[in-house]
């Protein structure tokens, strides 16, 4: 039996979750909410996390019914993300790991999303589309974040969910720039196009157009990745991954290819502590730990920088 506590705070959510051998014992979370159209600034976000992190930690232990002594490993997000919020959460993780005499483990945030998606859906060997506020990637290719677009939309509870609600009002499709080059997508140009042309529309069309265009691009590159790898499974993770229209469009593509689609709901799609605990669980079981002196946070941390020791 291995119990791992995971600390996540790389963006505007602070979450602490506890995982015991694939079972989520607790996963409390708080969101720093800013007005629509305003992003979250690093120092304000860090202040938010600072104010609630210890309360969330207490909740995580209480809801799991565990004492610190029951925890085997303390996992935290090493990166990628915003520096100040990452440091705030890492400080607490480092301190409790030492107070409780437990090993520490720095986790790549993107790996957390992927491992949590695999745990919840039981997908076997999927092609993963990771699409969130800050990061968009298929497999290990990196793309300019969908945040550039969805960041303009309210982040409570997540832009991916909110645009879905907004898009339900629209009926007409407006053509937006569509850029796919091989395995790369480009979202630049879409936002400028919307800004320049939005006075021509009543406001209901643009969320629909944005969803249809961006998601078509994502489905196209996901299908290409599957064709390259001979994969018959797709797993969608990340905060925008809980968008049902994206799941629906991906589902159509999967059906045509005879492939299977896996997705999770907002509890585990949106940043949370359990996903860090789950990735930490896999890493810890395969023998990884992070020494305190190596536990610095990093704003840039590519998914393919992580050595995967827990899977063949």
């Amino acid at each position: 039996m291995t119990v791992v506590i995971g600390f996540e705070g790389s963006a505007n959510k602070i979450g602490i979750g506890i995982i015991k051998d694939g079972e989520v014992l607790s996963n409390p979370r708080r969101t720093y909410i800013t007005p629509p159209g305003q992003g979250f600034m690093p120092s304000d976000t860090a202040r938010h996390h600072r104010a609630v992190v210890l309360t969330v930690l207490q909740e995580a232990l209480e809801q799991a019914g565990l004492k610190p002594a029951d925890v085997d490993c303390v996992a935290y997000t090493k990166g990628p993300g915003m520096g100040a919020p990452l440091v705030t959460v890492a400080l607490v993780a480092r301190t409790v790991a030492q107070l409780w005499g437990k090993p520490l483990l720095g986790v790549n945030h993107c790996i957390g999303h992927i491992e949590m998606g695999r745990l919840i859906t039981k997908a076997n060997n999927p092609t993963v589309l990771y699409v969130s506020g800050g990061n968009t990637q298929v497999g290990y290719r990196l793309h300019r974040a969908a945040w550039q677009l969805f960041g303009q939309i309210s982040n409570d509870p997540s832009p991916g969910y909110n645009i879905e609600q907004m898009a339900k009002k629209g009926t007409q499709y407006v053509e937006l720039p569509y850029t796919v080059k091989g395995m790369d997508v480009s979202f630049s140009g879409i936002l400028s196009y919307i800004e320049i042309t939005q006075h021509c529309y009543n406001g209901d069309e643009l969320p629909v157009a944005l969803q249809e265009t961006v998601f078509s691009m994502l489905v196209e590159i996901t299908e290409r990745a599957m064709a390259h790898c001979g994969s018959q499974e797709v797993l969608i993770v990340g905060g925008v991954g809980c968008n049902l229209r994206l799941q629906e469009m991906m589902g159509v593509m999967c059906k045509e290819r005879g492939a299977k689609l896996f997705a999770t709901d907002e509890r585990f799609c949106i940043d949370n502590g359990a996903m860090i605990a789950q990735a930490g669980w896999e890493m810890f079981r395969s023998g990884q730990v992070t020494e305190l002196e190596d536990s610095w946070i990093t704003q840039r941390y590519r998914t393919d920088e992580v050595e995967v020791t827990w899977r063949d």
Binding site: R50, V53, L54, L57, Q58, P68, A69, V87, T88, L91, V92, T95, V96, Q98, L99, W100, G101
Partner: peptide, 20 residues
């Protein structure tokens, strides 16, 4: 100083350190 106060508060709430 911000970081220090968070570490001290964490120690007060989740300490004292276990015996090694």
């Amino acid at each position: 100083l911000d970081h220090l106060s968070l570490v001290i508060e964490t120690m007060e709430m989740f300490g004292p350190p276990v015996a090694l």
